[in-house]
Design a binder for these strands. Structure first.
Lengths: 147, 147
DNA sequence: ACTAAGTCGATTATCTAAGTCGACAATTCA
DNA sequence: TGAATTGTCGACTTAGATAATCGACTTAGT
């Protein structure tokens, strides 16, 4: 039960993008550099986010990417769903047909409850929340640094 | 972010065992048969549960396995931990040293919250809860069948 | 035109989970 | 005692997914 690096890197990349919103288009290479992700790999991570309507990309010279909608309207649930694909924790939860026990399986209920709990957490957070936290943390770090 | 078959099969096997508690020692081959898990594989699944003190095993002819303590004292969290190993959703949550960003990483906070939510669900359920649900469901199915 | 970006698909590499097998140890029972 | 039965253990193989790279392509600016 491990989170894929797609999700980990992908969310970090998106947060990085959100943190640099004021500056217009952001080039992938800078995100890659800051987040220490190889550029070709980052391209793959961004793709589903573009396809999912979370990120807008502009090709050509001086192109780059930017958020398609305000960070406050981007729920982490959506982000993770796009990055990890539609399959949940266990196949039979989303797709009962894959296991003939589904209807009576109590173990399935457990996985279902677990998934609901996770989704609940992701659903309650937006990208904006992360941006705020990041800035709070950065400020706190700054202050201790100055003292 | 998939649950391993170890966890899925393992919990099913344990539940099967719990459901047959009244009958003394239960042989692995019957569990394997009922749950449609290959015997050699089931042996591997049971092992950590024995090592973890959830299951007692008796070797030799007429041997078998049985719960080491009442089902009501077996938390699912413990079961999953034994089956899946100690590593959580993301390395850096349990083991901050693996990522130098850990201290300031807000993305890590997200994973941490997710993990907490999942663990909370597992912590709130015992094997006995599953046994009861199973019996309730079975009874319900029985009634509809009779009608 | 030329350069600088993102896009896309093919490919490779790496890793881990999944599952099998054979030898062994313990226990029962004849 | 010895043969049958049952769990134990570790080595091995396989399969599949994830991670990551690469090169050819498209699009836009200068």
């Amino acid at each position: 039960m491990k989170l894929s690096t797609r999700a980990r890197y992908g969310l970090r990349a998106l947060l990085d993008l959100a943190l640099h919103q004021g500056e217009g288009l952001v080039q992938l290479k800078w995100i890659a550099l800051r987040q220490q992700i190889s550029l070709p790999y980052l391209e793959h991570l961004i793709r589903p986010l573009v396809a999912g309507g979370l990120v807008k990309s502009v090709r050509g010279a001086r192109g780059g990417v930017t958020l398609y909608k305000p960070a406050s309207e981007i729920r982490l649930r959506e982000v993770i769903r796009l990055l990890e694909g539609p399959t949940g924790l266990v196949e039979c939860v989303d797709n009962p047909a894959t296991c003939e026990r589904s209807a009576v399986c109590v173990v399935r209920d457990v996985w279902s409850a677990m998934e609901e709990a996770m989704v609940g957490v992701l659903d309650s957070m937006t990208l904006q929340d992360l941006v705020q936290r990041e800035e709070t943390k950065r400020q706190a770090a700054m202050e201790t640094y100055c003292i």
